[in-house]
């Protein structure tokens, strides 16, 4: 099957994300890339743990003063749900249901923006209420770098999914763009998994430990 071929429901293969050679390459290449991203975040987590609560003076806010679990709970729910909606989107992609896929992707994007909104609010809250900034201490630098790297990934993922949706809105699914949607959703799941670790290591352990 060729990537340019006009597709119908009957012709649509079971695994459209890896039917052509290009798609297979993209599929494996992206999994490998996520392996590299894992070491990237592992390094950031290690740095954060080494610098957690390392501040220059006794007045500076520590992790246990800063974090607020209700807000983090909302952010977590938004992001985890967006992972679920992207699963539904891929389910419809595999069934050649383009419109339904777009609806679920749209929901994913909305939830993603919701998450980003809570994060922006959270950061500005820390800066204004606690004077906890990127430059105020090693703890501040490490916190904003780790959580900010994740936030930047979310923002990039939103731009990515949105451009895919707009670019393909008029022409439906093909074996050329199906792998693109699939890989973007893989990326979205990865961001979600990283958040699970941030939630545990930064927020839960910050409140308890």
């Amino acid at each position: 099957m060729h990537a340019e071929e006009k597709m119908t429901y009957e012709k649509w293969p079971a695994a459209p994300e890896k039917t052509t050679l290009e798609a297979k390459n993209k599929f494996i290449g992206f999994w490998l890339f996520l392996g590299g991203e894992t070491t990237l975040f592992a390094s950031l987590f290690a740095t954060y743990l080494a610098l957690k609560d390392k501040v220059p003076s006794t007045e500076a806010a520590l992790a246990k003063d800063l974090f607020d679990l209700p807000l983090t709970f909302v952010a977590t729910m938004l992001l985890l749900t967006s992972s679920l909606t992207s699963v539904y989107a891929m389910y419809h992609m595999k069934n050649f249901a383009f419109k339904k896929m777009m609806v679920w992707l749209g929901l994913t994007v909305l939830l993603g923006f919701g998450f980003l909104g809570t994060e922006v609010y959270e950061f500005s809250h820390y800066v204004h209420t606690y004077k906890h900034t990127f430059t105020s201490s090693a703890f501040g630098s490490a916190f904003y770098t780790l959580v900010g790297f994740h936030g930047a990934h979310v923002a990039f993922g939103l731009c990515w999914i949105l451009s895919l949706m707009i670019r393909n809105s008029k022409r439906g699914l093909s074996l050329y763009n199906a792998p693109k949607f699939y890989v973007a959703s893989l990326y979205w799941h990865f961001i979600d998994v990283v958040w699970v670790f941030i939630f545990t290591v930064v927020y839960l352990m910050g409140m308890v430990g």
């Binding site: 740095t47 080494a50 610098l51 390392k54 501040v55 220059p56 990127f134 430059t135 201490s137 090693a138 703890f139 501040g140 630098s141 490490a142 770098t145």
Partner: peptide, 12 residues
Amino acid sequence: GANFFEVAMGGN
């Protein structure tokens, strides 16, 4: 202006 390696600011 970050402080990852500024010991006086808690860096290492």
